[in-house]
Design a binder for these strands. Structure first.
Lengths: 216, 216
DNA sequence: GAGCATACCTACTCGTGCGTAAGGTTACGC
DNA sequence: GCGTAACCTTACGCACGAGTAGGTATGCTC
């Protein structure tokens, strides 16, 4: 105990805000590797270079800690996307910039994405938080489609729009996942591929073209 | 103890195969509701109308049990899809039938889908098993696209094909998820919507049309 | 350089839930 | 009608990990 103190070159004493970020960094890392339940508070504390009671003192229980991670990563992502897609651009340009920002973010924050997408999905308490975020994205995409539709004088039911938007968001998430698993892959290129699938398909739909059976 | 035996109208003694299915049914149900870790073996045993040691005797540890669930549900799903999409039909017809079968399956087995898709994704040990299944689907879809491409005299890199296939599969999964959360939604209609997005987009790509920047 | 707040630690308690040991009961062949 | 094997039970051991109690060092203010 005394030995420990003397052998260590005096511990850094850091202000709360800094330590909180370190803890969150560690938490995101561990949660993404192990998953929510398999991750232990001990490992997180250890990884942050701090002891467990500090984590409890600053960030609260394990669930609260996870929500804090979710929140930080989610906010970062949404900001990255929102900052890129200015609302007064043409629809395809907005979509393109949004996708670029999105894949760029995932490529740069693979751990954060893993927490957001893979972990939060399963467990009830967090699914809600995540669903809200995703809902906002879907809404934006649906709004974009609707805008483009009206501009070309056509109209479609709200549910249809939502479902198409959902499909596009889902495809993007899936590719993001693919990107996270392929370190050699390029975010920009992935975004281009997604853009091709999304926009060309959406564009056809916007023109009123549908696939033969059950035009609906 | 004796009271218990006499008060119960003699327990049904069932053959192993039957009990195993009951256990798997219960396990899928509980896993889907609670998630892998939150689910307890006690609850599963209880729900199956059997005691815990029986579960261990027949299906092994919790992980093994989960894998068994994954395997059964996965196999059922793959069979449903494979049975619907005969390989000698035109590409769009195959895609359409595959999608119908897929969404039909999800609509009818929401619990199974929840286990497959939401739970297995997060935790390392199962992700591999799941990735294999998904990989097979992606391969089939990519094969379909490739076939259609060659038929129209064009050619595309293998990675590009895979990525597009991945996006389509991801979009379908996402819509399946949406379907699972909206009990009032119709599987057939959802399949049609997906078909529209997928096929029209894919069709454009197959024709060599690409979105302006970075035609690549 | 005393006092106080804040950062930080070691070392516990205690619930929860996996997996098992040891024994009871029913069917079925001979 | 009796053994034996498969079915099924209650009741426990034990590890692991969330969360806490209580104490120590450090810097800041006056």
């Amino acid at each position: 105990m005394l030995a420990r103190v003397s052998s260590t070159p005096t511990f850094k004493r850091l202000p709360r805000a800094v330590r909180e970020q370190q803890m969150l960094d560690a938490a995101v890392k561990v949660f993404s590797r192990r998953g929510f339940h398999a991750a232990s508070m001990d490992e997180i504390a250890d990884d942050a270079g701090i002891s467990k009671p500090m984590v409890y003192a600053y960030l609260g229980t394990k669930e609260e800690l996870f929500v804090a991670c979710l929140h930080r990563e989610g906010t970062r992502m949404m900001e990255a996307i929102a900052g890129a897609a200015a609302p007064d651009l043409p629809a395809d340009e907005r979509l393109w910039r949004g996708l670029r920002a999105f894949f760029g973010f995932v490529g740069a924050h693979r751990d954060g994405w893993a927490v957001l997408y893979r972990q939060a999905r399963g467990s009830q308490p967090f699914a809600a938080e995540l669903a809200t975020m995703r809902g906002r994205v879907v809404e934006v995409v649906a709004g974009m489609l609707d805008h483009a539709l009206r501009a070309s004088g056509r109209e479609v039911g709200a549910t249809d729009l939502e479902v198409v938007a959902y499909a596009l968001v889902g495809a993007s998430e899936s590719l993001a996942d693919w990107l996270a698993d392929h370190p050699e892959a390029d975010a920009e290129k992935t975004a281009t591929r997604m853009m091709n699938v999304a926009w060309l398909g959406a564009d056809q739909l916007l023109r009123g073209v549908t696939w033969p059976p059950l035009a609906e």
